[in-house]
Design a protein around this nucleic acid. Structure first.
Length: 469
RNA sequence: GCGGCCAUAGUUUAGCGGUAAAACACGAGUUUGUGGCACUUGGGUCCUGGGUUCGACUCCCAGUGGCCGCCCCA
Protein backbone atom coordinates (compact mmCIF):
# COMPACT_ATOMS: atom_id res chain seq x y z
CA UNK A 1 0.00 0.00 0.00
CA UNK A 2 1.36 3.43 -0.91
CA UNK A 3 2.77 5.32 2.03
CA UNK A 4 0.67 8.40 1.48
CA UNK A 5 -2.49 6.43 1.86
CA UNK A 6 -1.19 4.72 4.93
CA UNK A 7 -0.45 8.09 6.47
CA UNK A 8 -3.88 9.36 5.55
CA UNK A 9 -5.51 6.43 7.23
CA UNK A 10 -3.40 6.84 10.28
CA UNK A 11 -4.31 10.48 10.50
CA UNK A 12 -7.97 9.70 10.15
CA UNK A 13 -7.75 7.09 12.88
CA UNK A 14 -5.91 9.46 15.17
CA UNK A 15 -8.43 12.19 14.57
CA UNK A 16 -11.27 9.85 15.23
CA UNK A 17 -9.84 8.54 18.47
CA UNK A 18 -9.04 12.06 19.57
CA UNK A 19 -12.56 13.26 19.07
CA UNK A 20 -13.86 10.17 20.81
CA UNK A 21 -11.66 11.00 23.74
CA UNK A 22 -13.07 14.48 23.86
CA UNK A 23 -16.58 13.16 23.96
CA UNK A 24 -15.71 11.00 26.93
CA UNK A 25 -13.59 13.82 28.37
CA UNK A 26 -10.75 11.50 29.20
CA UNK A 27 -7.54 13.10 30.31
CA UNK A 28 -4.50 11.73 28.56
CA UNK A 29 -2.41 9.42 30.72
CA UNK A 30 0.76 11.04 32.02
CA UNK A 31 3.57 9.02 30.55
CA UNK A 32 5.86 9.73 33.43
CA UNK A 33 5.74 9.09 37.14
CA UNK A 34 5.19 11.90 39.65
CA UNK A 35 8.05 14.22 40.39
CA UNK A 36 11.08 12.75 42.06
CA UNK A 37 10.13 9.16 41.21
CA UNK A 38 11.78 7.10 38.55
CA UNK A 39 11.91 3.74 36.87
CA UNK A 40 14.83 1.47 37.45
CA UNK A 41 15.38 0.17 33.95
CA UNK A 42 16.96 -3.12 32.89
CA UNK A 43 20.21 -1.37 32.07
CA UNK A 44 20.51 -0.16 35.68
CA UNK A 45 19.69 -3.48 37.25
CA UNK A 46 23.23 -4.89 37.34
CA UNK A 47 24.14 -2.15 39.82
CA UNK A 48 21.08 -2.80 41.92
CA UNK A 49 21.76 -6.50 41.86
CA UNK A 50 25.30 -5.90 43.01
CA UNK A 51 24.06 -3.77 45.92
CA UNK A 52 21.55 -6.48 46.81
CA UNK A 53 24.21 -9.16 46.77
CA UNK A 54 26.75 -7.26 48.83
CA UNK A 55 24.29 -5.98 51.42
CA UNK A 56 22.52 -9.29 51.85
CA UNK A 57 25.77 -11.21 52.05
CA UNK A 58 27.11 -8.95 54.80
CA UNK A 59 23.78 -9.02 56.62
CA UNK A 60 23.97 -12.79 56.68
CA UNK A 61 27.63 -12.91 57.67
CA UNK A 62 27.10 -10.54 60.57
CA UNK A 63 24.02 -12.36 61.83
CA UNK A 64 21.22 -10.12 60.63
CA UNK A 65 17.85 -11.64 59.79
CA UNK A 66 15.73 -10.03 57.16
CA UNK A 67 12.53 -8.27 58.11
CA UNK A 68 10.05 -6.55 55.82
CA UNK A 69 7.60 -4.07 57.22
CA UNK A 70 4.84 -2.14 55.46
CA UNK A 71 5.62 0.94 53.44
CA UNK A 72 2.59 2.57 55.10
CA UNK A 73 2.39 3.07 58.87
CA UNK A 74 0.30 5.20 61.17
CA UNK A 75 1.38 8.78 61.17
CA UNK A 76 2.13 9.04 64.84
CA UNK A 77 4.67 6.22 64.75
CA UNK A 78 6.88 8.54 62.75
CA UNK A 79 5.93 11.72 64.58
CA UNK A 80 6.84 10.14 67.89
CA UNK A 81 10.08 8.52 66.81
CA UNK A 82 11.62 10.94 64.35
CA UNK A 83 10.43 14.00 66.25
CA UNK A 84 7.85 16.70 65.54
CA UNK A 85 10.41 19.43 65.07
CA UNK A 86 12.45 17.74 62.37
CA UNK A 87 12.36 18.67 58.69
CA UNK A 88 11.31 15.14 57.83
CA UNK A 89 8.14 15.38 59.87
CA UNK A 90 7.48 19.06 59.33
CA UNK A 91 7.59 19.14 55.56
CA UNK A 92 8.77 15.92 53.96
CA UNK A 93 6.20 13.33 54.99
CA UNK A 94 3.84 11.74 52.52
CA UNK A 95 0.85 11.65 54.87
CA UNK A 96 -2.74 11.04 53.96
CA UNK A 97 -5.97 9.75 55.40
CA UNK A 98 -7.34 6.39 54.32
CA UNK A 99 -10.95 5.89 53.31
CA UNK A 100 -11.54 4.61 56.81
CA UNK A 101 -10.15 7.83 58.23
CA UNK A 102 -6.83 6.49 59.50
CA UNK A 103 -4.00 8.96 59.42
CA UNK A 104 -1.13 7.18 57.74
CA UNK A 105 2.10 8.02 55.97
CA UNK A 106 4.59 6.48 53.59
CA UNK A 107 7.65 5.65 55.63
CA UNK A 108 10.38 8.30 55.46
CA UNK A 109 12.88 5.86 56.98
CA UNK A 110 12.88 2.26 58.11
CA UNK A 111 13.88 2.18 61.76
CA UNK A 112 10.49 3.25 63.11
CA UNK A 113 8.68 0.38 61.39
CA UNK A 114 11.32 -2.10 62.45
CA UNK A 115 10.98 -0.99 66.08
CA UNK A 116 7.22 -1.25 65.89
CA UNK A 117 7.45 -4.79 64.57
CA UNK A 118 10.07 -5.66 67.20
CA UNK A 119 7.74 -4.60 69.99
CA UNK A 120 4.53 -5.92 68.47
CA UNK A 121 5.83 -9.43 67.85
CA UNK A 122 7.87 -9.82 70.98
CA UNK A 123 11.10 -10.20 69.09
CA UNK A 124 12.90 -9.29 72.32
CA UNK A 125 12.49 -12.95 73.27
CA UNK A 126 15.09 -13.87 70.67
CA UNK A 127 18.73 -14.11 71.77
CA UNK A 128 20.28 -10.68 72.04
CA UNK A 129 21.34 -8.73 70.21
CA UNK A 130 18.45 -9.09 67.83
CA UNK A 131 19.88 -8.09 64.49
CA UNK A 132 17.49 -7.13 61.73
CA UNK A 133 18.09 -6.20 58.12
CA UNK A 134 15.65 -4.62 55.74
CA UNK A 135 15.62 -2.95 52.37
CA UNK A 136 13.03 -1.22 50.28
CA UNK A 137 11.67 2.14 49.20
CA UNK A 138 11.27 5.12 51.52
CA UNK A 139 9.61 8.44 50.75
CA UNK A 140 10.40 12.05 51.43
CA UNK A 141 8.68 14.98 49.80
CA UNK A 142 11.84 16.93 49.08
CA UNK A 143 13.19 18.80 46.08
CA UNK A 144 14.83 16.30 43.72
CA UNK A 145 18.42 16.76 42.62
CA UNK A 146 21.52 14.70 42.11
CA UNK A 147 21.27 11.55 44.21
CA UNK A 148 18.06 12.72 45.79
CA UNK A 149 14.62 11.43 44.96
CA UNK A 150 11.22 11.46 46.59
CA UNK A 151 11.10 7.72 46.37
CA UNK A 152 14.45 6.19 47.11
CA UNK A 153 15.77 2.91 48.40
CA UNK A 154 17.56 2.20 51.61
CA UNK A 155 19.29 -0.75 53.13
CA UNK A 156 18.89 -0.74 56.88
CA UNK A 157 20.68 -2.63 59.62
CA UNK A 158 19.37 -2.51 63.20
CA UNK A 159 20.42 -4.31 66.37
CA UNK A 160 18.38 -4.43 69.58
CA UNK A 161 19.20 -5.27 73.17
CA UNK A 162 22.90 -4.61 73.48
CA UNK A 163 24.37 -1.47 75.00
CA UNK A 164 28.04 -2.38 74.83
CA UNK A 165 29.93 -0.01 72.52
CA UNK A 166 31.52 -3.05 70.91
CA UNK A 167 28.28 -3.33 68.99
CA UNK A 168 28.52 0.30 67.90
CA UNK A 169 31.93 -0.46 66.49
CA UNK A 170 30.68 -3.55 64.73
CA UNK A 171 27.78 -1.69 63.17
CA UNK A 172 30.12 0.96 61.85
CA UNK A 173 32.29 -1.80 60.53
CA UNK A 174 29.36 -3.34 58.69
CA UNK A 175 28.51 0.01 57.11
CA UNK A 176 32.10 0.44 56.08
CA UNK A 177 32.33 -3.07 54.69
CA UNK A 178 29.20 -2.62 52.58
CA UNK A 179 30.58 0.49 50.95
CA UNK A 180 34.03 -1.01 50.58
CA UNK A 181 32.74 -4.27 49.12
CA UNK A 182 30.86 -2.33 46.48
CA UNK A 183 34.20 -1.07 45.25
CA UNK A 184 33.85 2.51 46.47
CA UNK A 185 37.18 4.04 47.45
CA UNK A 186 37.99 6.97 49.71
CA UNK A 187 35.42 6.36 52.39
CA UNK A 188 35.30 8.53 55.46
CA UNK A 189 33.55 7.67 58.68
CA UNK A 190 32.37 10.60 60.76
CA UNK A 191 31.57 9.85 64.39
CA UNK A 192 30.27 11.85 67.28
CA UNK A 193 28.47 11.34 70.55
CA UNK A 194 25.46 13.43 71.40
CA UNK A 195 25.03 11.90 74.85
CA UNK A 196 22.06 10.49 76.69
CA UNK A 197 18.92 12.50 77.54
CA UNK A 198 20.44 13.61 80.81
CA UNK A 199 23.69 15.04 79.55
CA UNK A 200 22.09 16.13 76.32
CA UNK A 201 19.70 18.34 78.22
CA UNK A 202 22.53 19.94 80.14
CA UNK A 203 24.46 20.41 76.96
CA UNK A 204 21.46 21.78 75.11
CA UNK A 205 20.95 24.45 77.75
CA UNK A 206 24.60 25.37 77.53
CA UNK A 207 24.43 25.55 73.75
CA UNK A 208 21.26 27.62 73.71
CA UNK A 209 22.87 30.05 76.13
CA UNK A 210 25.87 30.38 73.90
CA UNK A 211 23.82 30.72 70.71
CA UNK A 212 21.51 33.32 72.26
CA UNK A 213 24.57 35.43 72.92
CA UNK A 214 25.55 35.19 69.23
CA UNK A 215 22.02 35.35 67.91
CA UNK A 216 22.54 38.40 65.70
CA UNK A 217 25.29 36.56 63.81
CA UNK A 218 23.04 33.69 62.77
CA UNK A 219 21.06 33.26 59.56
CA UNK A 220 17.25 33.40 59.53
CA UNK A 221 16.86 29.64 59.52
CA UNK A 222 19.13 29.25 62.47
CA UNK A 223 17.31 31.86 64.49
CA UNK A 224 14.26 29.71 64.02
CA UNK A 225 16.19 26.53 64.79
CA UNK A 226 17.32 28.11 68.03
CA UNK A 227 13.75 27.68 69.22
CA UNK A 228 12.85 24.42 67.54
CA UNK A 229 16.02 22.37 67.30
CA UNK A 230 19.15 24.19 68.48
CA UNK A 231 21.45 21.25 67.74
CA UNK A 232 20.81 21.73 64.05
CA UNK A 233 22.52 25.11 64.10
CA UNK A 234 25.79 23.21 64.35
CA UNK A 235 25.04 21.63 60.99
CA UNK A 236 24.29 24.86 59.14
CA UNK A 237 26.44 25.45 56.05
CA UNK A 238 26.11 29.26 56.11
CA UNK A 239 29.51 30.80 56.66
CA UNK A 240 28.53 33.01 59.55
CA UNK A 241 26.70 30.18 61.28
CA UNK A 242 29.52 27.70 60.93
CA UNK A 243 31.88 30.30 62.42
CA UNK A 244 29.60 30.58 65.41
CA UNK A 245 29.26 26.82 65.52
CA UNK A 246 33.01 26.28 65.45
CA UNK A 247 33.43 28.14 68.72
CA UNK A 248 30.34 26.64 70.31
CA UNK A 249 30.57 24.26 73.22
CA UNK A 250 30.81 20.72 71.89
CA UNK A 251 28.66 17.86 73.05
CA UNK A 252 31.66 15.54 73.40
CA UNK A 253 33.06 17.84 76.08
CA UNK A 254 29.88 17.75 78.12
CA UNK A 255 29.05 14.08 78.31
CA UNK A 256 28.20 12.36 81.55
CA UNK A 257 30.66 9.73 82.80
CA UNK A 258 28.71 6.88 81.29
CA UNK A 259 28.41 8.47 77.85
CA UNK A 260 32.03 9.58 77.84
CA UNK A 261 33.20 6.08 78.62
CA UNK A 262 30.94 4.65 75.99
CA UNK A 263 32.39 6.98 73.38
CA UNK A 264 35.96 6.39 74.51
CA UNK A 265 35.52 2.64 74.28
CA UNK A 266 33.94 2.94 70.87
CA UNK A 267 36.93 4.88 69.59
CA UNK A 268 39.27 2.22 70.94
CA UNK A 269 37.36 -0.47 69.12
CA UNK A 270 37.41 1.57 65.93
CA UNK A 271 41.17 1.99 66.27
CA UNK A 272 41.47 -1.75 66.73
CA UNK A 273 39.48 -2.30 63.55
CA UNK A 274 41.71 0.14 61.65
CA UNK A 275 38.71 2.03 60.37
CA UNK A 276 39.41 5.45 58.88
CA UNK A 277 37.21 7.53 61.15
CA UNK A 278 37.21 11.17 62.14
CA UNK A 279 35.53 12.70 65.15
CA UNK A 280 33.13 15.35 63.94
CA UNK A 281 31.72 17.42 66.81
CA UNK A 282 29.33 19.13 64.39
CA UNK A 283 27.65 15.88 63.43
CA UNK A 284 24.11 15.86 64.75
CA UNK A 285 21.79 13.86 62.43
CA UNK A 286 18.31 14.88 61.51
CA UNK A 287 16.32 12.53 63.68
CA UNK A 288 15.47 13.14 67.31
CA UNK A 289 15.69 9.57 68.54
CA UNK A 290 19.45 9.31 68.51
CA UNK A 291 21.46 8.97 71.71
CA UNK A 292 25.19 8.62 72.32
CA UNK A 293 26.86 7.38 69.14
CA UNK A 294 25.98 8.98 65.81
CA UNK A 295 27.88 8.42 62.60
CA UNK A 296 27.81 9.03 58.87
CA UNK A 297 29.56 7.41 55.95
CA UNK A 298 30.92 9.87 53.44
CA UNK A 299 32.59 9.32 50.18
CA UNK A 300 34.92 11.75 48.47
CA UNK A 301 38.58 12.60 48.48
CA UNK A 302 40.17 14.37 51.41
CA UNK A 303 39.40 18.05 50.97
CA UNK A 304 37.14 17.38 47.99
CA UNK A 305 33.38 17.39 47.85
CA UNK A 306 31.77 15.18 50.45
CA UNK A 307 28.80 13.03 49.71
CA UNK A 308 26.77 11.32 52.40
CA UNK A 309 26.04 7.69 51.57
CA UNK A 310 24.26 6.99 54.80
CA UNK A 311 24.42 7.17 58.52
CA UNK A 312 22.95 6.09 61.78
CA UNK A 313 23.49 5.83 65.47
CA UNK A 314 22.22 4.62 68.80
CA UNK A 315 18.63 5.02 69.79
CA UNK A 316 18.55 3.60 73.28
CA UNK A 317 15.33 5.39 74.21
CA UNK A 318 13.23 4.70 71.15
CA UNK A 319 11.78 1.27 71.89
CA UNK A 320 10.59 2.42 75.29
CA UNK A 321 9.26 5.66 73.88
CA UNK A 322 7.12 3.65 71.45
CA UNK A 323 5.73 1.55 74.29
CA UNK A 324 8.14 -1.37 74.48
CA UNK A 325 10.55 -2.43 77.17
CA UNK A 326 13.58 -0.32 77.82
CA UNK A 327 15.89 -1.57 75.05
CA UNK A 328 19.20 -0.21 73.91
CA UNK A 329 19.52 -0.28 70.13
CA UNK A 330 21.62 0.94 67.27
CA UNK A 331 21.17 1.06 63.53
CA UNK A 332 22.06 2.70 60.27
CA UNK A 333 20.78 3.16 56.76
CA UNK A 334 22.50 3.53 53.43
CA UNK A 335 21.00 5.15 50.34
CA UNK A 336 21.04 2.71 47.44
CA UNK A 337 20.85 5.36 44.69
CA UNK A 338 23.78 7.14 46.26
CA UNK A 339 25.82 3.98 46.56
CA UNK A 340 25.19 3.35 42.88
CA UNK A 341 26.02 6.91 41.91
CA UNK A 342 29.31 6.53 43.71
CA UNK A 343 29.96 3.11 42.18
CA UNK A 344 29.62 4.66 38.75
CA UNK A 345 31.80 7.58 39.69
CA UNK A 346 34.67 5.29 40.64
CA UNK A 347 33.82 2.80 37.89
CA UNK A 348 33.11 0.00 40.32
CA UNK A 349 31.98 -3.24 38.73
CA UNK A 350 28.27 -3.98 38.63
CA UNK A 351 27.00 -7.54 38.84
CA UNK A 352 27.33 -9.43 35.59
CA UNK A 353 24.55 -11.90 35.10
CA UNK A 354 25.51 -15.09 33.29
CA UNK A 355 24.79 -14.70 29.61
CA UNK A 356 23.39 -17.45 27.41
CA UNK A 357 26.12 -19.11 25.37
CA UNK A 358 23.84 -20.83 22.95
CA UNK A 359 20.96 -19.76 20.74
CA UNK A 360 18.05 -21.86 19.53
CA UNK A 361 16.85 -21.05 16.02
CA UNK A 362 13.80 -22.64 14.40
CA UNK A 363 12.38 -22.76 10.95
CA UNK A 364 8.87 -23.80 9.98
CA UNK A 365 5.73 -24.57 11.96
CA UNK A 366 6.64 -28.04 13.09
CA UNK A 367 10.11 -26.97 14.16
CA UNK A 368 8.68 -24.00 16.04
CA UNK A 369 6.47 -26.29 18.08
CA UNK A 370 9.31 -28.69 18.78
CA UNK A 371 11.74 -25.95 19.68
CA UNK A 372 9.43 -24.58 22.34
CA UNK A 373 9.72 -27.89 24.13
CA UNK A 374 13.40 -28.28 23.38
CA UNK A 375 14.04 -24.92 25.00
CA UNK A 376 12.48 -26.04 28.28
CA UNK A 377 14.37 -29.33 28.04
CA UNK A 378 17.65 -27.43 27.89
CA UNK A 379 16.58 -25.04 30.64
CA UNK A 380 15.72 -27.95 32.92
CA UNK A 381 19.24 -29.20 32.41
CA UNK A 382 20.68 -25.91 33.50
CA UNK A 383 21.62 -24.73 30.04
CA UNK A 384 20.94 -21.06 29.46
CA UNK A 385 19.50 -20.57 25.98
CA UNK A 386 18.57 -17.50 24.02
CA UNK A 387 15.86 -17.59 21.37
CA UNK A 388 13.69 -15.46 19.16
CA UNK A 389 10.79 -17.75 18.37
CA UNK A 390 8.67 -14.95 16.98
CA UNK A 391 11.05 -14.30 14.15
CA UNK A 392 10.45 -16.18 10.94
CA UNK A 393 13.61 -16.15 8.90
CA UNK A 394 16.70 -18.03 9.87
CA UNK A 395 18.72 -15.07 8.74
CA UNK A 396 17.09 -12.75 11.24
CA UNK A 397 17.54 -15.28 14.00
CA UNK A 398 21.22 -15.73 13.28
CA UNK A 399 21.61 -12.00 13.29
CA UNK A 400 20.21 -11.92 16.83
CA UNK A 401 22.39 -14.85 17.84
CA UNK A 402 25.40 -13.02 16.51
CA UNK A 403 24.51 -9.86 18.36
CA UNK A 404 24.12 -11.78 21.60
CA UNK A 405 27.59 -13.19 21.10
CA UNK A 406 26.65 -16.82 21.68
CA UNK A 407 29.14 -19.57 20.97
CA UNK A 408 26.76 -22.10 19.53
CA UNK A 409 23.52 -21.89 17.63
CA UNK A 410 21.16 -24.84 17.50
CA UNK A 411 19.18 -24.95 14.27
CA UNK A 412 15.95 -26.86 14.16
CA UNK A 413 14.24 -26.87 10.77
CA UNK A 414 11.50 -28.90 9.13
CA UNK A 415 13.92 -31.62 8.11
CA UNK A 416 15.54 -31.89 11.54
CA UNK A 417 12.17 -31.89 13.28
CA UNK A 418 11.17 -34.93 11.24
CA UNK A 419 14.53 -36.66 11.72
CA UNK A 420 14.64 -35.87 15.44
CA UNK A 421 17.98 -34.15 14.98
CA UNK A 422 19.40 -30.71 15.56
CA UNK A 423 22.17 -28.83 13.78
CA UNK A 424 24.84 -27.42 16.06
CA UNK A 425 26.63 -24.49 14.53
CA UNK A 426 29.83 -23.12 15.98
CA UNK A 427 29.47 -19.37 15.54
CA UNK A 428 33.15 -18.60 15.45
CA UNK A 429 34.23 -21.23 12.91
CA UNK A 430 30.91 -21.68 11.14
CA UNK A 431 31.36 -25.44 11.32
CA UNK A 432 28.10 -27.37 11.68
CA UNK A 433 27.29 -30.88 12.80
CA UNK A 434 24.10 -32.85 13.10
CA UNK A 435 23.20 -34.40 16.45
CA UNK A 436 20.28 -36.52 17.53
CA UNK A 437 17.86 -34.72 19.86
CA UNK A 438 18.31 -37.42 22.48
CA UNK A 439 22.00 -36.72 22.77
CA UNK A 440 21.71 -32.97 22.44
CA UNK A 441 21.89 -32.04 26.14
CA UNK A 442 25.03 -34.10 26.68
CA UNK A 443 26.73 -32.88 23.53
CA UNK A 444 25.97 -29.24 24.27
CA UNK A 445 27.17 -29.58 27.85
CA UNK A 446 30.36 -31.16 26.65
CA UNK A 447 30.95 -28.52 24.03
CA UNK A 448 30.38 -25.67 26.44
CA UNK A 449 32.79 -27.23 28.92
CA UNK A 450 35.55 -27.77 26.41
CA UNK A 451 38.08 -25.02 26.47
CA UNK A 452 38.92 -25.35 22.81
CA UNK A 453 35.57 -24.00 21.75
CA UNK A 454 36.65 -20.89 19.96
CA UNK A 455 34.50 -18.25 21.52
CA UNK A 456 32.87 -15.61 19.47
CA UNK A 457 34.81 -12.91 21.28
CA UNK A 458 38.17 -14.34 20.31
CA UNK A 459 37.47 -14.13 16.63
CA UNK A 460 39.07 -11.01 15.26
CA UNK A 461 36.77 -10.76 12.27
CA UNK A 462 33.78 -10.11 14.43
CA UNK A 463 32.74 -6.93 16.07
CA UNK A 464 31.22 -7.53 19.41
CA UNK A 465 28.34 -5.20 20.02
CA UNK A 466 27.19 -6.48 23.34
CA UNK A 467 30.42 -6.03 25.26
CA UNK A 468 29.92 -2.39 26.14
CA UNK A 469 26.32 -2.58 27.17
C1' G B 1 10.70 26.53 50.56
C1' C B 2 14.43 29.80 47.35
C1' G B 3 17.69 30.62 42.86
C1' G B 4 19.85 29.22 37.85
C1' C B 5 19.83 26.32 33.23
C1' C B 6 16.99 23.16 30.07
C1' A B 7 12.65 20.37 27.24
C1' U B 8 12.72 17.88 19.07
C1' A B 9 12.49 9.88 17.29
C1' G B 10 14.16 4.65 22.11
C1' U B 11 19.18 7.50 22.98
C1' U B 12 22.47 11.72 21.82
C1' U B 13 21.80 15.99 19.23
C1' A B 14 20.88 19.51 14.53
C1' G B 15 17.30 22.88 12.66
C1' C B 16 14.11 27.06 10.63
C1' G B 17 8.30 32.13 11.52
C1' G B 18 5.98 28.40 6.05
C1' U B 19 3.49 21.49 8.66
C1' A B 20 10.84 18.27 10.74
C1' A B 21 16.80 16.15 10.07
C1' A B 22 21.40 13.17 11.37
C1' A B 23 23.97 9.42 14.03
C1' C B 24 23.29 5.25 16.92
C1' A B 25 19.54 1.81 18.58
C1' C B 26 15.06 -0.97 17.13
C1' G B 27 11.57 -3.59 13.43
C1' A B 28 10.87 -5.48 8.27
C1' G B 29 13.37 -6.69 3.88
C1' U B 30 17.65 -7.32 -0.03
C1' U B 31 13.91 -14.30 -3.82
C1' U B 32 14.87 -20.79 -2.77
C1' G B 33 17.09 -23.05 5.12
C1' U B 34 22.65 -19.62 7.67
C1' G B 35 25.39 -14.19 11.35
C1' G B 36 29.19 -9.63 11.35
C1' C B 37 29.59 -5.24 6.29
C1' A B 38 26.51 -2.78 2.87
C1' C B 39 21.85 -1.21 0.86
C1' U B 40 16.31 -0.40 0.95
C1' U B 41 12.50 0.70 4.23
C1' G B 42 9.38 1.78 8.82
C1' G B 43 8.50 4.81 13.12
C1' G B 44 7.90 11.79 15.90
C1' U B 45 0.52 15.05 19.19
C1' C B 46 8.97 18.90 17.94
C1' C B 47 6.53 18.43 26.92
C1' U B 48 1.23 20.58 27.96
C1' G B 49 -2.07 24.82 27.68
C1' G B 50 -2.80 29.74 26.25
C1' G B 51 -1.20 34.23 23.38
C1' U B 52 1.17 37.04 19.00
C1' U B 53 0.76 35.84 13.59
C1' C B 54 -2.20 34.63 7.29
C1' G B 55 0.85 30.71 9.42
C1' A B 56 4.42 28.69 15.63
C1' C B 57 8.55 23.06 16.64
C1' U B 58 10.63 28.12 16.12
C1' C B 59 8.61 34.32 19.39
C1' C B 60 5.91 35.58 24.38
C1' C B 61 3.38 33.88 29.01
C1' A B 62 1.87 30.07 32.31
C1' G B 63 1.99 25.04 33.80
C1' U B 64 4.49 20.38 34.13
C1' G B 65 8.90 17.78 34.19
C1' G B 66 14.37 17.24 34.20
C1' C B 67 19.26 18.78 35.76
C1' C B 68 22.26 21.89 39.07
C1' G B 69 23.05 25.06 43.46
C1' C B 70 21.01 26.58 48.53
C1' C B 71 18.35 24.17 52.56
C1' C B 72 18.17 19.35 54.29
C1' C B 73 19.37 14.59 54.02
C1' A B 74 19.88 8.88 51.86
Amino acid sequence: MPRKIVKKIKKAVTKKSKSEMKVKELEPVMLQPPRGMKDILPGEQPYWEQVRRVTERLARDYGFSRIDTPVVEFNNLFNRSIGEGTDIIEKEMYSFATKGGDKVALRPEMTAGTCRAYIQHGLHLLPKPVKLFSTGPVYRYDRPQEGRYREFYQVNYDAFGEQDPVLDAQMIQVAYRVVQNLGIKSIQIQVNSIGCPTCRKEYKDLLVNYLESKKNKLCQDCKRRLETNPLRVLDCKEDKCSQVAAAAPQSVDHLCDDCRNHFKNLLEYLDELDLPYAINPQLVRGLDYYTKTVFEIWSGEEGGRKFSLGGGGRYDGLVKMLGGENTPAIGFGLGVERLILEMKRVQAKPYRAPKPRIFLAQLGDLAKKKSLKLFSELEKNGILVAESFGRGSLKAQLRVADKLGVELTLILGQKEALDRTVIIKNMASGVQEIVSVDKLVDVVKKKLKTDNVVTYHDNGNHNNHSENK
